[in-house]
Design a protein around this nucleic acid. Sequence first.
RNA 1: GCGCCCUUCGUCUAGUGGUCUAGGACGUCGCCCUUUCACGGCGAAAACACGGGUUCGAGUCCCGUAGGGCGUACCA
Length: 467
Amino acid sequence: MTTTPVVTRFAPSPTGFLHIGGARTALFNWLFARANGGKFLLRIEDTDRARSTPEATEAIFAGLKWLGLDWDDEAVSQFERIERHAEVAQELLAKGAAYKCFSTQEEIAQYRETAKDEGRSTVFRSPWRDATDLPDAPYVVRLRAPRDGETVVEDVVQGRVAWKNETLDDLILLRSDGTPTYMLAVVVDDHDMGVTHVIRGDDHLTNAARQVLILDAMEWSRPTYAHIPLIHGEDGAKFSKRHGAPGVEDYRDMGYPAEAMRNYLARLSWSHGDEEFFTTEQAIEWFGLDTISKGAARFDFKKLDNLSGQHLRAMDDVELTELLTDYMALQQMPVPNQDTRAKLTVAMPALKDRAKKIPDLLEMGHYLLTARPIEMDEKAAAQINDVSRGMLERLTVRLRNANWSHNDLEAAIKAFAGEEELKLGKVMQPMRSVLTGRSTSPSIFDVLVHLGREESLARIDDMLAAA
RNA sequence: GCGCCCUUCGUCUAGUGGUCUAGGACGUCGCCCUUUCACGGCGAAAACACGGGUUCGAGUCCCGUAGGGCGUACCA
């Protein structure tokens, strides 16, 4: 027995951006290919010229790259293969497996209407299926589909799915303008590209029945099908724009690391026991079509946030600093210089401890990214009054003589609070305001150390001078 | 309308006839830690859609019902 190498593909239509559902489909295909040492191919389904744009194609490339889903070989343009699609249609015609249908769209619509009125099946039955006397008029090429028996698709996730052939119509292969339909194009392309496993959304499950008919007519072998459930929004309806963030770039912009995104998306309708948090390497090791469930999953931002935080905390500090500066560049923010980056890396353990997304890192590390004079936000400013000002003034005197280490500073400040009979928080919060301009930040002792003696004291002096 | 698919805590899921008085994770609530916010630790509430079968025994198999989804184009 020869083992044929696995070939999967992702085949999006370039009509906008990389949809979150599409991204998950791409991820499954990628994971399966990588898990089996196979190939992951990309095909752009751009045969609908009116809706396809080069920008959308670029957006899909960008989305996949950001997610880290690298594809093998050149991306295939379906549009460029229409000659080949037509060729197959001709072959089918020659074999008698397809026929020319001269019914107009109006006639078809009429047929369906009367069928509906009479309570019959609305599946169109072309009068040209067995006609011998053909007019000289525009025609479409239809598949001569079997009318008896049933068509069965063995799907690795859905199981055995069967349709009575009488419910399937003679689908159109070539339109009256000679261009191929989607049904024909997918089948031909998948075959020519050597795709062994078709992993796609279960909105294509019904299409599989008709595609299999084309395959059979051409006497081509069938790929393994895996129709995976769709991703729904938090309200249970198909994930769309009104759910807030339909495109992968939205998640990039919100500051989720790609690794967290892969982890979260992988866990939607797929699982490996109780594993929740894992690396991409582990996902590749564990992934299998047999552990995909049939039910649609709802997208849950809360869980994504949690996973994202875990990934942030697991990341290396230098790597995280890079991720942070890349994000700042992406958001058109001034990118910190080498010196500031070094400080960010040092502070990173404290910053990442309380972050879920990259912008949280930015917020936490704000004190390192801002220069004197510090601007306080509203909550921070509320901490400053005559009492806290006086307190800080007395504290500063102590600080000037303190040894500038985390432990010594902590000891000095605690001693001060004790003498003033103040709860530590009463001392810390005003300090936080003055040093960071925020009401939340890493530990003040850390902040003092990160900032250094000179900068810390200067920030306090600024405030006192402004009084 | 017709066809196909789906249905375990609020959410993601484990579960492949007995070990399920149903496990984990997120979220929620409580307690602890604590200078804020987080993180972390401990604990709690919380589900087999419903009804029939099959079986000694069903979350697990079969059939209905209900609910949801997808499809039903000379779109992809």
